Amino acid sequence: MDVFMKGLSKAKEGVVAAAEKTKQGVAEAAGKTKEGVLYVGSKTKEGVVHGVATVAEKTKEQVTNVGGAVVTGVTAVAQKTVEGAGSIAAATGFVKKDQLGKNEEGAPQEGILEDMPVDPDNEAYEMPSEEGYQDYEPEA
Results as ranks from 00 to 15, higher is better:
M1G: 00
D2N: 15
F4P: 00
K6G: 01
A11F: 03
K12V: 14
E13L: 01
G14F: 11
G14P: 01
V16P: 00
V16I: 13
A17N: 08
A17G: 04
E20I: 11
E20R: 02
T22L: 06
T22C: 06
Q24F: 15
Q24A: 11
G25I: 12
V26L: 08
A27G: 04
A27V: 07
E28V: 12
G31F: 13
K32F: 12
E35I: 15
E35C: 12
L38K: 07
Y39M: 10
Y39C: 03
G41S: 12
K43G: 01
T44E: 00
K45Y: 13
K45I: 14
H50K: 09
H50R: 13
G51Q: 09
G51V: 13
A53N: 12
T54C: 14
V55A: 05
A56H: 07
A56V: 13
E57L: 08
K58Y: 13
K60I: 12
K60T: 06
K60Y: 08
Q62N: 08
Q62W: 06
Q62D: 01
V63Y: 11
V63K: 01
V63S: 02
T64E: 07
V66L: 11
G68V: 11
V70A: 03
V71I: 15
T72R: 10
G73R: 06
V74M: 15
A76M: 05
V77R: 03
A78G: 05
A78C: 07
K80L: 13
T81S: 05
V82F: 10
V82T: 06
E83Q: 10
G84P: 02
G84I: 14
G86F: 14
G86K: 09
S87V: 14
A89V: 14
A91N: 07
A91C: 08
A91F: 13
T92M: 04
F94M: 02
F94N: 03
F94K: 03
F94Q: 06
V95R: 10
V95T: 11
V95L: 13
K96S: 10
D98L: 12
Q99A: 13
L100A: 12
K102G: 04
K102E: 15
N103W: 13
N103T: 11
P108Y: 05
Q109K: 14
Q109Y: 10
L113N: 02
L113M: 07
L113A: 12
D115C: 06
D115E: 12
M116V: 01
P117Q: 13
V118Y: 09
D119G: 08
D119T: 11
D121M: 08
N122L: 05
N122P: 07
Y125P: 10
Y125F: 08
Y125Q: 10
E126H: 13
M127R: 05
S129L: 06
E131V: 11
Y136M: 09
E137T: 05
P138Y: 07
E139H: 06
